[in-house]
Design a protein around this nucleic acid. Structure first.
Length: 898
RNA sequence: GGGCGGUUAGCUCAGCGGUAGAGCGUCUCGUUUACACCGAGAGGGUCGGCGGUUCGAAACCGUCACCGCCCA
């Protein structure tokens, strides 16, 4: 006997272990079934499950379970990402607590420590995925730093290097002073900062008393100025172009150049050019072949080393004693000191408050310092071309399609991808240097050594590059590296390309684009046929969840409180294509009711000895009731399948919800009660049908609510224990006489609803039973009413049912159903005035609509131009409404004369 | 500045040329032996504004406003 309420906490773990130990999640590379592959976006190994994960993994699990049930050989590839910076930060924080640092430990010991940490704590996220019910093929779990995946990384790096698609270059990079590493453009976030625009006067060389005023947001970088730029068309400065200014504080003589970069509308129209610390200035510097001295080091502290030769002591303008005090000063301190000095020297024209965008490291949160360094780059532009083409040709489709625009916009203007990071945790770049700096890129040290020996003609010591690769470099290989590449495995041949990649839009550039590039380059085919981009999870108010706002909801907490099924179903129900999901505990709580409803309906079935009968098929149904519910089930099966095909999880959830609750529970089980209480062939058919339909409901809901459905599957013995997961997805099956059954049951539903409405509006207590009389009813209607009297009696609180041939009794309420008028003799219970008002209101509503309709049909243009069937439909509707009005008028006149 | 998305019932959203809908919430009634995590019923919207196309517009086009996001 099922308990009165469902308690997910008690059964979820056991069910999951049951599936996992039975290998229910396993792909079957040897089967004949068509494969269906989803590669998990590998969560950071440092991570724990947040709502964003819950959303994306619920969607993926729903898809994978559905396809698995549909007969596909489903592979959902699990794994985690080594997450270079994030993981290094976590372990460095631990070291800090122990009062040490990674530098003190040394690279080797530090890496050992990270691996140790990974061994102890890296399994959190995968345990949490299990709680969510994610049916990942765990024995295939991969980690981006596994031996196999590392081999793939080296293979790709070496190949691209030898193809000239990876190269070293000295250029300006986004430097994160906190991590002291380069980061890619994508890891930079612009933040609005309230700052100042400092107007500084630079004297013109050789023209006593003349100066040019530059406006800058970063006075501290002026030490590295090598020019002042003005717009070539700017009349104010035309005569100064070609002359020189003296850089205050430093004393360097710098040219005034004409360059279109300088905007006459902004500031003073003259800008200082610091090529080594600003991307725009770098471009100007290149155009005018300016020197590019760095004046900030890797910690963003002032360094004078590269401007030593330019330092000139000019009393009152550039005093070396002051300049020397800047050495080693943090950039913020240096700004203050320089501004104060300019003030003292009388070179500060004005200070304007100014709001501007400042690039920040997305993980460190500190302002980025553009820095001239040598880094490794991938030629993203060239790799992007085939990826663009693949999307243009529809070999990979985005759903919703609008995201293709985002993808194209970025890919068509893609910049070189800086792939080296000055970190320790990650894939160390397979590059070695000889004593003269000659680089040898090979997969192993032995090969590099051999190459060096060949190159120098004698065995020569080489040292390995210290840098590691951007974490996204290995992620980019995920769709094939996880399947064993560069080995040509059976899995690789079978599961590549994947069917769909499911992810959020925030990761299109970081990951999707790069998988497309690498997949096409190395596999010769796209990594996935579709990319499903879903929305973001937000809180109930639509705010982004963040720790600082304190509005973060923990999915594990929701699972504890309401069960994984409730959370999963809520996510499905709220996930429309491309829409953000606003989610709060209240939402999950209300969908938990649905889980309970299903449980209780099952409990009712159990109480009535409803048990699965494997020999039952829908074509055996003979009764209107069973045919009706089976036909409706067919509609639902079709609806659910169409919705899932289109990634419309809300429609899928909605279709199942409505069928289960509003049809199966609210009507079918209620109608079935009389039959269930009896014995005989009718009772048997109703029970067999109920069991059949319940079984189909469990199958339909399983992808979204795996636990409760599997539990019920087991309790009812629909199949061997824990096999719902592997049971066939339902197909619509022919139901004989479905149309007639539908007409009959729809009529009964309408009759009951009408009677209920009238009684409720007339305030008739449910305990007060009454007769239902039909006036002007066809024999068919009367027969239906009699056939269903038992159910009608219970559901509409009726004591009798029959035709009314005589006059309407005094004190009757009336309502219209088709050709007939329902008469409820309520005697003294009824307020005639209220009944009149009610009928008039009803009449008014219909008359209003009829009037609109008549007007429409009176429009010659409408008759002439609208399609035939629309006109016909409108005519019929008008006729129906007019008949109804006539019946309501009759009902009203009866009251008037009564 | 460029681009994308949104604006429909109190809330969350569906509908995307032919009768304005759902869930939740609200109100009223009700413990009728599956379920109060329940049942029955009701109220509630000039579909952001303005133009246009059309026999017909919530839907299509234009424009404006506001909100959100991405890129510079």
């Amino acid at each position: 006997m099922l308990n009165k309420t469902y308690t997910p906490g008690e059964i979820e773990t056991a069910l999951y272990e049951g599936w996992e130990s039975a290998g229910a999640f396993a792909a079957k590379p040897d089967s004949n079934a068509a494969p269906y592959t989803i590669m998990i976006p590998p969560p950071n190994v440092t991570g724990s499950l947040h709502m964003g994960h819950a959303l994306t993994f619920t969607i993926q699990d729903t898809l994978i379970r559905w396809r698995r049930m549909s007969g596909r050989d489903a592979l959902w590839q699990p794994g985690t990402d080594h997450a270079g910076i994030a993981t290094q930060m976590v372990v460095e924080r631990l070291l800090a607590e122990e009062g040490t640092t990674r530098q003190a430990l040394g690279r080797e010991k530090f890496l050992e420590r990270v691996w140790q940490w990974k061994g102890e704590s890296g399994g959190t996220i995968t345990r949490q995925l299990r709680r969510l019910g994610a049916s990942l093929d765990w024995p295939r779990e991969r980690f981006t730093m596994d031996d196999g995946l590392s081999a793939a990384v080296r293979e790709v790096f070496v190949t691209l290097y030898k193809q000239g698609l990876i190269y070293r270059d000295r250029r300006l990079v986004n430097w994160d002073p906190k991590f002291q590493s380069a980061i890619s453009d994508l890891e930079v976030e612009n933040q609005e900062v309230r700052g100042n625009l400092w107007h500084i006067t630079y004297p013109i060389d050789g023209e006593e008393g003349r100066f040019i005023t530059v406006a800058t947001t970063r006075p501290e970088t002026m030490l590295g100025d090598t020019a002042v730029a003005v717009h070539p068309e700017d009349e104010r400065y035309k005569d100064l172009v070609g002359k020189f200014a003296i850089l205050p504080i430093v004393g360097r003589r710098i040219p005034i150049v004409a360059d279109e970069y300088s905007d006459p509308e902004k500031g003073t129209g003259a800008v200082k050019i610091t090529p080594a610390h600003d991307f725009n200035d770098f471009a100007v510097g290149k155009r005018h072949t300016l020197p590019m001295p760095s004046v900030l080091d890797r910690e963003a502290k002032v360094t004078l080393a590269e401007i030593e030769d330019a330092i000139t002591d000019i009393p009152g303008l550039a005093e070396t004693t002051f300049l020397r005090t800047l050495e080693g000063l943090d950039r913020g301190m240096a700004r203050k000191a320089i501004v104060a000095e300019l003030e003292r020297l009388g070179r500060l024209d004005k200070i304007e408050p100014h709001i501007h965008q400042v690039p920040h490291g997305d993980r460190s949160g500190v302002p980025i310092e553009p820095l001239l360094t040598v880094q490794w780059y991938a030629n993203a532009h060239e790799l992007a071309q085939p990826a663009i083409k693949a999307v243009e040709e529809g070999r990979t489709k985005f759903v919703p399609q609008q995201w293709e625009n985002t993808f194209f916009a970025w890919m068509r203007d893609i910049q070189p991808w800086c792939i080296s990071r000055q970190l320790w945790w990650g894939h160390r770049i397979p590059a070695w240097y000889g004593p003269d700096g000659h680089v040898f890129v090979e997969k192993t040290e032995e090969e590099a050594q051999a190459a060096a020996t060949a190159h120098y003609g004698t065995e020569t010591a080489i040292i390995r590059d210290d840098d590691v690769l951007d974490t996204w470099f290995s992620s980019a290989l995920w769709p094939f590296s996880t399947l064993g590449w560069p080995e040509q495995t059976k899995e690789l041949a079978r599961y590549y390309p994947g069917d769909v990649l499911v992810t959020g839009f925030d990761i299109i550039f970081f990951w999707v684009a790069r998988m497309m590039m690498m997949g096409i380059h190395f596999m010769g085919d796209v990594p996935f046929k579709e990319v499903h981009i879903h929305g973001l999870v937000r809180d109930e108010k639509g705010q982004k969840m963040s720790k600082s706002k304190g509005n973060v909801i923990d999915p594990l907490d929701l699972i504890d409180r309401y069960g994984a099924d409730a959370l999963r179903f809520t996510i499905c129900a709220l996930t429309g294509p491309g829409r953000d999901v606003k989610l709060g505990a209240a939402r999950v709580e209300s969908y938990r009711s649905f889980v309970t409803k299903l449980w209780n309906a099952s409990r009712f079935c159990e109480m009535n000895a409803i048990a699965p009968d494997p020999d039952f098929t829908p074509d055996q149904a003979t009764l209107p009731l069973t045919r009706w519910i089976l036909a409706a089930l067919n509609d639902t099966i079709v609806e659910a399948g169409v919705a899932l095909e289109a990634y419309r999880f809300n429609d899928y959830a909605g279709a199942c919800y409505r069928f289960t609750w509003n049809l199966f529970c609210d009507w079918f089980l209620e109608f079935a009660k009389p039959a269930l209480a009896s014995a005989g062939p009718e009772a048997t058919e109703v029970k067999r049908t109920a069991a059949f339909v319940l079984g189909r409901i469990l199958r339909l809901l399983h992808p979204a609510m795996p636990y409760v459905t599997e539990e019920l599957w087991n309790r009812f013995g629909y199949g061997a224990p824990n096999t719902l997961i592997a049971t066939a997805w339902p197909q619509a099956e022919p139901v004989p006489g479905a149309e007639a059954a539908r007409a009959e049951l729809d009529w009964v539903v309408r009759l009951i609803s009408e009677v209920r409405t009238v009684r409720a509006e007339m305030n008739v207590a449910p305990s007060q039973l009454g007769a239902i009389l039909l006036k002007d009813a066809s024999p068919e209607s009367l027969a239906r009413g009699e056939r269903w009297f038992e159910a009608i009696g219970r559901m509409a609180r009726a004591s009798s049912f029959g035709p009314l041939d005589s006059d309407v009794p005094q004190g009757s309420a009336q309502a219209v159903i088709g050709e007939a008028t329902i008469v409820l003799p309520l005697g003294g219970l009824i307020d005639l005035g209220a009944e009149r008002v009610r009928l008039q209101k009803e009449r008014g509503k219909i008359a209003g609509e009829a009037e609109k309709m008549a007007k429409k049909l009176g429009n010659a243009d409408f008759i002439a131009r609208a399609p035939e069937d629309i006109v016909e439909e409108n005519r019929e509707r008008l006729a129906t409404m007019q008949a109804e009005i006539a019946r309501l008028d009759a009902a009203l006149s009866r009251i008037a004369t009564a």
